[in-house]
Computed example of a mutant assay.
Amino acid sequence: MTIARAAGRLISRSEIVERACSWLRDSVPYSQTKFHQNEHGIYRADCSGFVSMAWGLPGKPEDRHGGSDTPGLVVVSSLIAADELKAGDVIIRGEGGNETRHVVIFAAWAEEPGRYWAYEQAGGHRTRLRSVTYPYETGAESYAPRRYVSVLEP
């Protein structure tokens, strides 16, 4: 079992959502090799870069832009139960290769049972907010809800 450790400054849930919405506003195209720059910094335009930006994580190493990779997001988060999910938490698949790892930011439970709203940066799409079947559409058994260890709780 990996013990989570803080990697960035303390951040509120409302700031995480605000930061995620900045890429939704910018309609950022997905890329594992390109970067997006806005008022929150320069981050890789893939799913883990998106979450790194939303969580306010520094680049790895810190003098490099881009944020953390998906396994790195697991290291700075703690496993939680599905009924504990709050805006700014993630649902993540941290193992596997670049084609199988993925992470989305939880926004809220949807009215339709078994579904939730997620901010997502995924291949073939621009940043979007969409309804997703819990825990995720494909490879569901490999996804888990997690909470960033530096999130401020009220």
Rank of each mutant, 00 (worst) to 15 (best):
S14V: 14
Y116H: 08
R9P: 10
R19A: 02
I91V: 08
Q32K: 09
H102S: 04
V17A: 14
D89F: 03
A110L: 04
E39W: 14
E18Y: 15
E153H: 11
Y116P: 07
L79K: 03
R101S: 04
G124E: 11
V149P: 02
V132K: 08
I105V: 05
E120T: 03
V151I: 10
V132S: 08
A54R: 01
E62T: 11
E137Q: 13
D63M: 10
L152F: 12
R25A: 10
R146M: 00
T33R: 13
T70M: 00
G94L: 00
Y134F: 11
D69G: 07
A87D: 05
A108G: 12
V28T: 13
H65D: 11
G67Y: 05
E137Y: 12
V17K: 07
G114V: 05
Y143M: 06
G72S: 13
S12A: 14
L57S: 03
N38V: 08
I92F: 01
V132T: 07
T100M: 08
S22P: 03
A110H: 10
F106G: 02
P61V: 09
G41K: 02
A20G: 04
I42H: 10
C21G: 13
P61Q: 12
G8Q: 02
L24H: 03
N98P: 09
L79N: 06
S31L: 02
S12V: 08
A122S: 15
D46R: 15
V75S: 14
G123K: 15
G41L: 06
R146F: 00
G94Y: 00
G59F: 02
T138D: 15
E62D: 07
P145Y: 01
W55H: 01
R126T: 14
S68N: 14
A144I: 04
E62S: 11
I91R: 01
D83S: 10
Y43I: 04
E112M: 15
I16M: 07
E95A: 12
V90K: 01
V74H: 04
V51L: 14
H40L: 07
V75C: 09
G97K: 10
P58Q: 07
L10A: 11
F35G: 10
R44M: 06
E141R: 08
V149A: 06
G67A: 05
V28E: 05
R9C: 06
Q121L: 09
E99S: 14
E95T: 05
G67P: 09
R115I: 01
S12Y: 03
R126C: 11
P29S: 15
